[in-house]
């Protein structure tokens, strides 16, 4: 059994249309497992309407806890903690859960074993069915850490599903930015679809996220969303793509139809003809790219 090919949709800048493009691709691609790797703010399920949802807790790194009765107030943990996570409240040493990184140095240095590290549930991942195929997504507890590990977990689940069902492709909706969840989402991917928009912010973020894909040696292509709002900037993106030797796969004009469909939580490519045509082009291109590997 060949390893399933992974296509990841990323953007750098948030709000450029990753989820719209991923959902639209999901609507026409045959035989795939769909993943929402934006575990901070997972929105794909709103359009895909999953059923038969099975959820599993995800345990992340631990948090320190200080036993008040055992603590001898030596202050060593507070002095050595590099995350400034230990504070004195009403005369007692306490751990601020929002600052604690779970490194365990306080436990190591405590002379009276008053510190324990308690593992925390930091999120939940879900496996579900949709009319477009199997779907794996997750929800990080707001404010929690370890989003990169949760992304790795949902991707691993998708790979197992693909292997079990002999499914050749995994389609991944990535998070914004360039940090750990994005690195986890793109690592091992066969193709990265970068969705950008012709704004100075969009271009600035495109450069950084392209550097990230190049850094990890991942083949990429660009989609310019709302390409008609600033033709000059669209040309600048095309020039950038040419210089870097990456293809521009589509330019999707701004459309009221797409906005209205998203507002109604519907898959926009069904009703919005121009989008649907562009999505077909993107899909054809990705198929060729993956065949040429």
């Amino acid at each position: 059994m060949k390893k399933a090919k992974e296509i990841v949709v990323i953007s750098g800048k948030g709000g450029t249309g990753k989820t719209t493009i991923t959902a639209s691709l999901a609507g026409i691609m045959t035989d795939k497992v769909i993943v929402d790797a934006d575990v901070d703010a997972a929105n794909l399920y709103i359009l895909l309407r999953p059923q038969n949802i099975r959820g599993t807790d995800f345990t992340g790194k631990g948090l320190a806890e200080i036993d008040r009765d055992l603590c001898v107030h030596c202050g060593l943990c507070k002095e050595l903690c590099r995350f400034f996570a230990i504070e004195i409240v009403d005369g007692d040493y306490r751990v601020d859960p929002f600052s604690c990184d779970g490194c365990g140095l306080c436990k190591i240095v405590c002379p009276v074993q008053a510190v324990t590290i308690e593992e925390q549930v930091v999120g939940k991942w879900f496996s579900a069915d949709t009319e477009f195929g199997a779907f794996v997504y997750a929800r990080l507890i707001p404010g929690a850490e370890n989003s990169g590990n949760l992304v790795t977990m949902v991707k691993e689940q998708a790979k197992q599903k693909a292997a079990a069902g002999n499914i050749p492709t995994i389609l991944i909706d990535g998070p914004p930015g360039i940090g750990c969840p994005v690195i986890s989402a793109v690592s091992g991917a066969d193709f990265a679809l970068i969705v950008t928009e012709p704004t100075y912010s969009g271009i600035s973020d495109l450069r950084r996220v392209f550097d990230l894909t190049a850094h990890f040696g991942i083949k990429s292509g660009i989609v310019i969303n709302r390409c008609d709002i600033n033709p000059g900037n669209t040309t600048a993106i095309e020039t950038f793509a040419r210089e870097k030797g990456i293809p521009v796969l589509a330019g999707i004009p701004h459309s009221r139809c797409i906005m209205d469909e998203i507002s109604e939580s519907r898959l926009p490519a069904r009703k919005c003809k121009e989008l649907s045509r562009q999505i077909e082009n993107i899909y054809e291109h990705i198929k060729t790219e993956l065949l040429n590997e």
Binding site: G14, D40, F98, L140, G143, S147, P176, G177, P181
Partner: peptide, 28 residues
């Protein structure tokens, strides 16, 4: 602050006196 709901956002909000949340009128 950065987008998302994980650690970088918490770090940016911890010391704040007031938070302005910017949103758009879509289900997302």
């Amino acid at each position: 602050a950065s987008p998302g709901t994980s650690c970088p956002v918490v770090e940016s909000l911890k010391k704040s006196d007031y938070v302005i949340l910017v949103t758009e009128p879509t289900p997302f």
